[in-house]
Simulated assay, not measured.
Amino acid sequence: MTARPRIHFEFKSRSPSQREIADRLGLSQATVALALREHPDIPVVIRAEVKRVADEIGYRSHPDLRILPDHERTKLPPSRRPSLGWINAWREPARLARHPDYSGYWRGACKAASERGYYLEEFRLSPKATAEELEQQLQMKGFHGILLPPDGDPTILNLFPWKNYRIVCLSHHTLPFPANLVGPDQLGNFRLALERMHNSGYRRIGFLTDRRPEASNDKLSMAAFPYNQCDSLSEGHLPIATTAENPVPHQLAEWARSHHLDAILTDLPGAGLLLKRARLRIPEDLGLAFSCRGQIRGWAGIDCHPEEVGRLGVEILASSIHGDLDGIPSIRIAVEGHWHEGSTLPLAPEGN
């Protein structure tokens, strides 16, 4: 999916602007914007000069569009609506939009933002930017709130000035302060997937993922698999395989055969191709189910309702922006998934 482009809106009015104040004083527009808001990081002398020039040229700030009712904001052109930031901290930013689940988050969030009178804009964090450069870029954007999609690079995310924004995470990021979170019910979804696989006759189920958890980004699906094996749904505790530790196809094949697996549960959208390269036939050799199946027909697994995750993310963020959640502890919303049958997981052979 191609990210929605920024719509540049040019006012035809000749009314004075912040840019004109900045040009007169030799300042950046970001500094002028902060000075007009009495930001404490701007020296008092500069704030006074900015206000003097603003009065001199007749500059008048626009009213805070956040206080308008939703139906009033929706009448505004996109370029005049309050903007929400979609923070892309991936090392290869274009891959985020191609992810079958995360692109669903984006679609749901875009739709909800439009309905609430906001404009959602992708903002790509550059690993080469300094913290000061990033702060200046964000000030120019003027985001009223932030959505943080999954799997951002921790070293890039560490540059972000989180304390300055209202944030909703769409994954279990570990941030330096409490944050609201909306995401799939990974524990419940894994439980449901294992139950359905068990009901189809599979007993020796392994879990295939990309990597083990990192310090700054919890991988809840990794915890969900062994947690849900602590009952009669599987025979013993089977190992977890990661593509980071088993990068060569034959290593995956050896893992499956050495543990006598009859099925694999995975959170990797590309698992079918990986197993094909390992010369493991699906479903002849192994049953295969996905903990979040995306929109691919024929796959067995959980529909995580990614667009609903994105929609709820915007709803919580808008409530936070309007102050409706002030004084309330961090909110966690887990969106329940639903099972879909598919050709990758037929009934297991008799005597399996």
Rank of each mutant, 00 (worst) to 15 (best):
I57K: 06
E235V: 04
R281Y: 07
D64E: 13
S28G: 12
P329Y: 12
E315M: 01
S15L: 12
L120Q: 06
T31Y: 10
P213F: 10
R80L: 15
R95G: 00
L261A: 06
I328R: 15
D41P: 00
G272Y: 15
A223R: 15
A223Q: 15
R211D: 13
R203S: 12
L147R: 08
R124T: 15
S232N: 09
C304Y: 02
I328D: 08
R66E: 13
I205P: 00
S258V: 08
I87D: 06
D23V: 02
H340R: 13
W86S: 02
R95I: 05
T155C: 00
F160L: 05
A300V: 10
Q186R: 14
K219A: 10
A54E: 07
C292Y: 10
E315D: 13
I282L: 02
M222A: 04
H39P: 00
T174A: 04
E245S: 03
I87S: 05
S61F: 00
R281A: 14
P226H: 07
G342F: 14
Y119S: 14
E92T: 14
H39L: 06
P149A: 05
P5K: 14
I205C: 01
Q139Y: 05
P43H: 14
N246C: 13
E341V: 02
A113T: 01
A244K: 12
D55F: 05
T31L: 13
I316G: 00
C169P: 00
C304K: 01
S221T: 12
W255C: 08
I21G: 08
L181D: 01
L170V: 03
I302A: 04
P226Y: 10
E284M: 05
S126H: 07
A215P: 00
E214L: 08
P154A: 09
Y59A: 07
L208Q: 04
D64W: 10
D210S: 14
R19M: 12
R60E: 15
M140V: 06
C292Q: 12
R24F: 09
V53K: 05
A256F: 10
A244T: 12
W106D: 09
G183W: 02
E341R: 12
A253L: 10
D262V: 11
V314E: 00
